[in-house]
């Protein structure tokens, strides 16, 4: 019961680690470009949760500011990533990662 009831920062950090693991598994195991992109977003969000938790531990707002930066960079990354997906789809008519292996030796 001690492990479960008073919610400590460790609970949030473990949740963040689990979310990051789910995101990593998605990036590594899926072949669909969209789902890989979304898994990346999931990983970024797990890191944000850690930042906010540490911010809450110290009572310092720096973590919140960094989350703002991460969200802005994630938005830029999503835009560029989706533009690349569209360019790739025009090229090969597919969003499957197995199709794009012309650089594979």
């Amino acid at each position: 019961m001690d492990l479960l009831y008073p919610i400590t920062p460790t609970h949030y950090l473990v949740l963040s680690a689990v979310l990051f693991g789910i995101g990593t598994a998605g990036v590594l195991s899926r072949k669909n470009l969209f789902i890989v992109l979304m898994s990346l977003e999931l990983m970024l969000n797990a890191v944000n949760l850690s930042f906010v938790t540490f911010s809450r531990i110290n009572g310092d707002l720096t973590g919140h500011v960094i989350v703002l930066f991460v969200v802005a960079v994630a938005a830029a990354e999503a835009c560029v990533g989706l533009a690349i997906v569209i360019a790739l789809y025009r090229l090969k008519e597919s969003v499957d990662l197995d199709v794009f292996k012309s650089l594979k030796g």
């Binding site: 949030y12 969209f34 992109l37 979304m38 977003e41 969000n45 944000n48 906010v52 938790t53 911010s55 809450r56 919140h64 989350v67 703002l68 969200v71 994630a74 938005a75 999503a78 835009c79 989706l82 997906v85 569209i86 789809y89 969003v95």
Partner: peptide, 29 residues
């Protein structure tokens, strides 16, 4: 975690912006 600003940011930018963009592109293709 009493991060009001970040919570609003999450809804506005992620759920409202990035995900709409992703869904838009999925449907576009």
């Amino acid at each position: 975690l009493s991060a009001t600003f970040v919570a609003i940011l999450q809804i506005l930018v992620y759920a409202g912006g990035i995900m709409v963009l992703i869904i838009f592109v999925i449907m576009l293709l």
